[in-house]
Every structure is written in structure tokens, then in C-alpha cells.
Design a protein around this nucleic acid. Structure first.
Length: 437
RNA sequence: GGCCCUAUCGUCUAACGGUUAGGACGUAAGCUUUUCAAGCUUAAAAUCCGGGUUCGAUUCCCGGUAGGGUCACCA
């Protein structure tokens, strides 16, 4: 069998967006699965709208996602090639220079439409047929020097030996034109696969109008590339089993082009967040530390011990930065601030009994062997807590340690904070209560 | 409007003629070391409609309806 060759053909007239990334991913998965080749081709024939910045954004976006390529081309650097084929088409009578009365210029190059029915087999959808008569003699180049999309695509796919064209559903209506040009050029027909579109909440093609973000935005927001890829892959395809968490390699292994969905899929960021959390869970502590560095450059031992519970509370690294900014983990700082009244359990808001209880807890804890983990800390205080009422003991203790209305439970805090800080904070709470008496 | 594509819980989807129509996200309730978070358990929630074919249709065919895509000297 012939080697599989696919292409990823973005147009650098905008940032790398979700749809392009998903199409790129499917091309990549299919090629890798078949030991094929991936060609990245910048479709920058529109010199007005194409920019180097967008090209760069697309390249680094794909790189971030580990969607690699084997060859790279720019259509803007292939004018001579298109010119030659354009000339051939004109010479063979399949195209002609047409005088125009409308539009920007006096003459353009049009394709001589044979007006026939085109049938092609789509791997995801079955047979699709078109009557090309209504297409008319469509324009394929502004001039012999300035090829347009359809011509450039067909010539490139031909010359680059593309075997499979995997693209969005919006490419279906381009297919008959391209097949017509192929036939005139004597080029082989690639196998077509049209992917369902990614939709916005209103079921129309996802676009900036829906507030759709560029791929690099997700990197900035602290998503894991592999989670993003996993999510993207499951938009329009799934392996059928009940497992949903896949690495890139696992996706490559189980990808099945025949299982591609036909209907469009609404993009749902909630699910993306969930995928991210699931991938986060699979990371080792060392990997997490690496990621957390930019947010928390100085990882002291308290923070380090807190890592597991920090990660329990976030879905993305963006959440993590946000949580620190909002002070959710303020109890990890050296100093905490809070109002003494917070120490009072709402069912029993009595200052002197609360002081007494905290005093007793302090004594109990002091006798223990430190450092103490959460399980031991619990065992140590538990009996007393059951005697006095759990809330009555646990609430003030937790507030004393965290200074917050909401926080992890006191035993976890004891483990994280260690003896010195824990004891100091209980002492401080006692002082506060006295001042409030 | 012409042409083309599509149609299972709110969302992503499984079921390739026979299932109590399964899972996940989200939602709600409950449980736990009575604040959160996480976790666990449970619940509500779907085959667009109408005709065929068949002993039997989510599944195959036809029609309708709805949604989408595309109709550039953009890609």
C-alpha cells in the first residue's frame, strides 16, 4: 500500500483556533497511525490578509500540542509552480483568460467547467454527488502570477502526493471544484474525509462571534496540552469504550477514522476543564512542581506539603494562580489575619468556653510526637472532640489554624503547618479571644 | 433561495435489527472526619415527526420537519 501523506493547511489570516487544531489533530493521528507523513502548508496566497505573526502563532500552537510535521511549505513561495500549471491548463484549453466587467480587475483566469456530475466517496459519510453545472466557469487565479485557493490546493496536493484530505465539513462544497481541476491536471484523486464542525452554543460554526479563544489562550489559562488534545479528539470522535482519558499515544493507537461522527458538536468548556483535571491527577508531584514554578517561585516546605490539597482544589493552573491571588491559600503564608469572632462556633458562641476548649486542645496536641500527619492528629484530638461536640472543637481549631471561614479540615492543616506554626496560631487565637472578652 | 450535509438525555456520546437505550460533563439530593474542596452513592434527563421494509427498528428505505454548511477576483 502507498504511504499515507496528509496535510495541515492553515491560512495565516488569524490565530490558531480550535477548529484548525482539531482538524490538524485528526490528520496527525491518522498519519501517525499509518506511519505516514504530515505536511504543514501555509495557505498564504492571500497576501493582503496573511501575516508572519499569525503564521508564528499557528506554528507554536501546533508545537505546544505536539502536533508535529515532517515537511513545511508556504504557498507564497511556490508561485512559479502554480504559474506553470496554470499555463498548462490554459494551453490544454481547460482554463482561459477572461475579460471582466465586474470586480477589481479587467481580466482573471477562469476554469472551463465541463459541466458534469461529480461523485466522490467520503470516508466518514459515504457517497456524495454534485452537479457542477451551477458552479459555472469559476475563477482559479487573479492572473497568471496570482493563483487562488482552489488551484493552489489542487496543485500542491498533487505535487506533495497527498493521499488523504481530512478537513472540516465546510470543505465539502469545495470538493467538486477541486476534483474538476484535478481531472484537468491529470492528478490522482485523494481520499476525502470531512469532519463535523465544532459548533458554538447556538449550533452555528464556532467563531470569534461566540467568544471562541485561540489555542494559545488555553495555554495562557493554564491548560495541559494533552488534556486539550484529549478534549479536542472527543469532539466528533470517540473510541467507544467507557474510558475517556487518553494520552496522545493512546489516541493514536485507538483512533479510527471510520468512527468519526457526522453531526456537529457543540464546544463545551466545562468538559474541557474536567479533562484537564483528570490529566492533572495523573501528573507526578515532580511534574506538578515544575508547572507551579512560574506561579510560586519560592516553594517553602509548608507549600510543598500543601501541594496535594492545593491540586485537589483546582482544575487548571489558571485557577491556581487565581486562587492564590484571591487568598484561598492564605493560611500557607507566615502571617494570617482574621476577626476573633470567627473563632466562635455559631451554635455555641461563647468566648470563655471557646478559649477553654482551645486551651485544652493545645495541651493535647503539645504532648504528641511531632511531626504529625493528619490521621494521627485526628486520633489525638478526636476523643475530646466527641466529648465536647465535634463542631464545638473542630471549628475554633480550624479557624485558629487557617484564619478562614472555609479551609481544609484542622487535621490536614496541622500536618501541613507543622508544630511551630500550629502551636503559635492556637496561641494567637487565645490572645485574640482574650482581647475580645 | 439553489446545492450539499446532519438529526440519541441540556451537552459530548455508546448501542453497526432483538439492551430495563449504556457512559461522561453539567444539574439535584444524600453520605463521610458536622466549614469548604475532593471523594463516594443515588436521582432527574434522550432515540425529531410520519410512512414503509421486517417477526422485530435508535439502527435500513422514503417523505416531512428542524438545524447547519456553502454559494468571492477569501481560504
Amino acid at each position: 500500500m502507498k504511504e499515507v501523506v496528509v496535510r495541515i493547511p492553515p491560512s495565516p489570516t488569524g490565530n490558531l483556533h480550535i477548529g484548525t487544531a482539531r482538524t490538524a489533530l485528526f490528520n496527525f493521528l491518522f498519519a501517525k497511525q499509518n506511519n505516514g507523513k504530515v505536511i504543514l502548508r501555509m495557505e498564504d496566497t492571500d497576501k493582503e490578509r496573511s501575516t508572519k505573526e499569525f503564521e508564528e502563532d499557528i506554528k507554536i500552537g501546533l508545537e505546544w500540542l505536539s502536533i508535529t510535521h515532517d515537511e513545511f511549505y508556504r504557498q507564497s513561495e511556490r508561485d512559479e509552480i502554480y504559474k506553470k500549471h496554470l499555463q498548462d491548463l490554459i494551453n490544454s484549453g481547460n482554463a482561459y483568460i477572461s475579460k471582466e466587467t465586474e470586480g477589481d480587475r479587467d481580466e482573471v483566469i477562469r476554469f472551463k467547467n465541463p459541466n458534469k456530475e461529480i461523485k466522490f466517496n467520503d470516508l466518514a459519510r459515504g457517497e456524495i454527488s454534485f452537479d457542477t453545472t451551477e458552479l459555472g466557469n469559476f475563477v482559479i487565479a487573479k492572473s497568471i502570477e496570482e493563483p487562488l485557493y482552489h488551484l493552489a490546493v489542487v496543485v500542491d496536493d498533487f505535487l506533495m502526493g497527498i493521499t488523504h484530505v481530512i478537513r472540516g465539513e465546510d470543505g465539502i462544497s469545495n470538493t467538486p471544484r477541486q476534483i474538476l481541476i484535478q481531472e484537468a491536471l491529470g492528478a490522482p484523486r485523494p481520499i476525502y474525509v470531512h469532519l463535523p464542525l465544532i459548533l458554538g452554543p447556538d449550533r452555528s460554526k464556532l467563531s470569534k462571534r461566540h467568544g471562541a479563544k485561540g489555542v494559545m489562550e488555553y495555554k495562557k489559562e493554564g491548560y495541559l496540552p494533552e488534556a486539550f488534545l484529549n478534549f479536542l479528539a472527543f469532539l466528533g470522535w470517540n473510541p467507544g469504550g467507557e474510558n475517556e482519558i487518553f494520552t496522545l499515544d493512546e489516541l493514536t493507537e485507538s483512533f479510527d477514522i471510520e468512527k468519526i461522527q457526522k453531526g456537529g458538536a457543540i464546544y463545551n468548556e466545562e468538559k474541557l476543564r474536567w479533562f484537564n483535571r483528570e490529566h492533572l491527577k495523573k501528573m507526578t508531584l515532580e511534574e506538578k512542581k515544575e508547572y507551579i514554578k512560574p506561579i510560586l517561585p519560592q516553594l517553602d516546605e509548608v507549600h510543598e506539603r500543601a501541594l496535594p490539597i492545593i491540586f485537589e482544589r483546582i482544575e487548571t493552573f489558571g485557577d491556581l494562580a487565581e486562587a492564590f491571588k484571591e487568598g484561598e491559600f492564605s493560611y500557607l503564608n507566615d502571617e494570617i489575619e482574621y476577626d476573633a469572632r470567627l473563632l466562635l462556633w455559631k451554635k455555641d458562641p461563647d468566648v470563655s468556653t471557646t478559649s477553654k476548649r482551645l486551651e485544652n486542645v493545645k495541651e493535647i496536641l503539645e504532648k504528641e510526637t511531632w511531626p504529625m500527619n493528619a490521621v494521627v492528629a485526628r486520633e489525638s484530638v478526636w476523643k475530646y472532640a466527641e466529648e465536647e461536640g465535634k463542631g464545638e472543637i473542630l471549628w475554633p481549631l480550624r479557624v485558629a489554624l487557617s484564619g478562614k471561614e472555609r479551609s481544609p479540615d484542622p487535621f490536614v492543616l496541622i500536618e501541613i503547618l507543622g508544630k511551630d506554626i500550629s502551636m503559635k496560631r492556637i496561641g494567637d487565637a487565645l490572645t485574640k479571644l482574650k482581647g475580645n472578652d
